[in-house]
């Protein structure tokens, strides 16, 4: 890995995206409380550096899978805040036309192949898109995100087994935010270091702290390069932390204030902001970016609010794909 040479423009762009995610999530939480958003809402606040780093590394042609905690990567990949907010509001203009909701964002144009809500269920799908890349001789890497709690289920084991065996061009990223819902890692796994699991599948394992977007980029870039060059999959465990509860219905009583406050000292967004200031960027310029983002998010809420509701005909017509043309 090379020495970090922060590039101001890159970092500014990354700061902006991270702030978009942060503000989007905060606004979503508010509208959930108001009843404009329903169902389950899992926020990405605190984990932003990971999605943004991945989006920086990936090519447009690459594929991405994520769990239900999917707003961050969707936005980092370039989904408009309008389409994202409208989905949460259950509107026809949403990224899944109001049919998917928070847990099931899709942006197929950008290779974002979904937010998935059954733990472990999407890992094999990621191996599947990677299989297609190999089958068709295409230079497309798949990246698949999931939580620490997802590393104990059969779906994880089987996907990792196949990907390792067939040296598929896929990167498995475990966002270890220390909790599976209310259960801390020490009560879901006898391992402290999850990355050693990689060895059992004959793939490379890696492990790092996830609050520094530049560090995360380096590690993901290395794994993506490995996949792209045909050397097979990587399993990366990225240590991170969610600043909110598991979902909006979780008061997160299982952790202490002190723990949370301590973790907030490593806020990935604050870290980038401070680094930018260190690089000579004027604070006011960053404030201007923040204001611009606030306006963008406000506009997204207006857009979502004014959009037409999800449509019954779309619901009925999307149960099965039309036949013919094969």
């Amino acid at each position: 890995m090379g020495v970090l040479v922060p590039n101001k423009d890159d970092l500014l762009r990354q700061y902006r995206t991270m702030m978009v995610i942060r503000r989007f999530e905060e606004e979503a939480a508010r509208h959930y409380a108001k009843g404009n958003i329903g169902g389950f809402l899992h926020l990405y606040i605190g984990q932003e550096a990971i999605a943004v780093a991945a989006a920086e590394v990936l090519e447009d042609r690459d594929y991405i899978f994520q769990t239900y905690r999917d707003h961050g990567i969707a936005l980092a990949r370039g989904m408009s805040v309008n389409a994202a907010m409208a989905e949460l509001f259950g509107k026809d203009t949403g990224c899944s036309r109001g049919l998917g909701g928070s847990m099931h964002f899709f942006d197929v144009q950008r290779g974002f192949l979904g937010g998935w809500a059954i733990v472990g269920g999407h890992l094999a799908l990621a191996a599947g898109t990677a299989f297609k890349s190999k089958y068709a001789g295409e230079d497309r890497v798949t990246i698949c995100f999931f939580g620490d709690g997802s590393t104990n289920i059969g779906g994880f084991h089987e996907a990792m087994s196949l990907a390792g065996l067939w040296k598929l061009p896929v990167v498995f990223v475990c966002e270890n935010n220390q909790y599976a819902m209310g259960t801390p890692l020490e009560r879901t796994s006898p391992l402290k270091d999850l990355s050693i699991k990689a060895k059992g599948y004959g793939m490379v394992g890696d492990r790092l702290e996830g609050h520094d977007v530049e560090v995360v980029q380096e590690h993901i870039a290395e794994a993506v390069a490995r996949a792209r060059s045909g050397e097979g999959p990587t399993f990366i465990e990225i240590q991170t932390y969610r600043f909110r509860g598991h979902s909006m219905s979780d008061p997160a009583k299982y952790r202490s204030r002190t723990e949370l406050e301590q973790r907030k000292q490593q806020d990935p967004v604050v870290l980038v902001r401070e680094r930018l200031i260190g690089l000579g960027v004027d604070e006011h310029a960053l404030d201007d970016i923040d204001i611009e983002i606030d306006e963008e998010i406000d506009a997204a809420v207006r857009f979502a609010d004014e959009s037409p509701p999800a449509r019954e005909d779309v619901m009925m017509n999307t149960v099965l794909a039309p036949e013919g043309g094969s």
């Binding site: 329903g38 989905e87 259950g90 899944s96 049919l99 998917g100 909701g101 928070s102 099931h104 509701p309």
Partner: peptide, 14 residues
């Protein structure tokens, strides 16, 4: 109804 459950409340109610 004979469809996967949609997210939007107006459709779920149907």
């Amino acid at each position: 109804l004979d469809v996967p459950m949609p997210y939007a409340l107006n459709l779920e109610d149907k």
